[in-house]
């Protein structure tokens, strides 16, 4: 029989109790266990960043973390970034405005990575942003729209504060 554990985890503010196989990655659990398919698996070996989610606010690769490790923790996925009424977050809006996505496959990981980054680095340079997403591969955009979106949000946040 497969080795399983009971876990309790809060995902996008909602708590879930589940019995998971110990070998199941967090990404697979979110996608196939909870049906939160916004988190994407691009490489399943920790390099592409598509699977990035936030665990207790920190950007984490969900292909490299086991679901059982999130027992008692809080996970935020791309589905949890917009307001409850569906209003996009400022970063999501900026991606839209700056054409920061084409196929949209890397996008959830880009958004979660940059959400955590901008919270901790509210006034980044272009170089800082490029370094921040250097662990997220995008094959479509050439990164420019993504970088512009992040810088635009940072600028707006600076003005607002």
């Amino acid at each position: 029989m497969a080795d399983t554990r009971d876990i309790e985890v809060t995902v996008n503010g909602e708590s879930h109790a589940a019995n998971v196989e110990t070998r199941t990655s967090l990404g697979d659990f979110l996608r196939h266990g909870l049906g939160l398919t916004g988190t994407h698996m691009g490489c399943e070996h920790g390099v592409c960043g598509a699977c990035t989610v936030m665990v207790d606010g920190e950007a984490v690769r969900s292909c490299l973390m086991l679901a059982v490790q999130t027992n008692g923790h809080e996970v935020t996925t791309v589905e949890g970034l917009a307001e409850d009424d569906g209003t996009l977050s400022p970063l999501q809006e900026a991606f839209w405005k700056h054409h920061g996505l084409q196929c949209g496959f890397c996008t959830p990981g880009m958004l979660t990575s940059l959400t955590a980054f901008l919270r901790d680095n509210p006034d980044p340079s272009e170089r800082d942003v490029r370094e921040a997403i250097s662990g997220n591969i995008c094959r479509c955009t050439g990164y420019q729209g993504i970088v512009d979106a992040a810088l635009d949000v940072a600028k707006t946040m600076q003005k607002g504060s």
Partner: peptide, 21 residues
């Protein structure tokens, strides 16, 4: 024109093959 396909993809509601069950 800002892309019509984006809001859905940005919110994590794309439907790629592996998202279909």
């Amino acid at each position: 024109v800002q892309r019509m396909e984006d809001p859905r993809l940005l919110a994590g509601h794309g439907r790629y093959v592996d998202d279909i069950t």
